[in-house]
């Protein structure tokens, strides 16, 4: 009975998602996908769209690779994975250009660069190629959401401290500016993202250790 359970590798969606959101988070624990996390987190709306685009790509590339896992010849394994990922990224980019044109303009090259995001390739290569399609799909979804959660978190602090806004709405009262409060320009620049992500990583490591 015990053996059977191991062989079937039951899909536990909730467990997979909480793991990827916290204990094995792709950004704050594995420190992957940092490049785009620096670039698109100046505002929350770009971060949300980027997070969703990556979640779409990693979930469906995992699904496709898992479905094909017995058919993919070992010697062109990586090329196959890249082809699948690239196709999905271009589809995501086309959709953004058609329906979220302004945000797609702001994201510019970074949607295309999802192809090179280590998270996508990493999940396809370490998980999807050895697991059933449902499990792989959930794993992709979980890791995408793990990435998106950190992105949105970083963007929240950068937009709030750097521009005094949340999702484009001014939240710091004018009275505070009149008293001499200033927005922190550093937060809008790439170093601001480094610092915020660094603090996230530190916080997470500390909390993980203290348990």
């Amino acid at each position: 009975m015990q053996d059977l359970a191991v062989k079937l590798t039951p899909v536990r969606p909730l467990r997979a998602i909480t793991e990827a959101l916290w204990r094995t988070n792709p950004i704050s624990k594995q420190v992957l996908g940092i490049c785009s996390a620096l670039a698109v987190t100046v505002q929350m709306n770009t971060a949300i769209v980027m997070g969703l685009a990556l979640t779409f790509v990693v979930a469906f590339s995992n699904l496709a690779v898992a479905c094909l896992r017995h058919a993919i010849p070992r010697n062109i394994r990586i090329i196959t994975e890249v082809a699948v990922i690239a196709t999905l990224v271009i589809i995501a980019d086309e959709f953004l250009k058609a329906f979220l044109f302004d945000i797609s303009k702001q994201l510019s090259v970074f949607v295309g660069l999802i192809i090179t995001n280590c998270i996508v390739m990493g999940r396809a290569e370490t998980f999807a190629i050895n697991n059933s399609p449902p499990a792989a799909f959930v794993d992709g979804l979980a890791n995408g959401l793990g990435y998106a959660s950190v992105l949105v978190g970083v963007a929240f602090f950068r937009e709030l401290l750097g521009a005094g806004k949340i999702l484009g709405h001014a939240v710091i009262p004018q009275a505070l500016y009149d008293l001499g409060y200033r927005d922190m320009g550093l937060m809008l620049l790439a170093p601001g993202a480094f610092i915020v992500i660094g603090l996230f990583v530190w916080l997470q490591q500390t909390l993980l250790k203290s348990r």
Partner: peptide
């Protein structure tokens, strides 16, 4: 031959999807 066949089928499928989206 299997590898070439797989690669060809994959390429055709991917390009069909892209054409459709575009």
């Amino acid at each position: 031959a299997k590898t070439v066949l797989f690669a060809t089928v994959l390429c055709v499928a991917c390009s069909l999807l892209l054409t459709l989206a575009s």
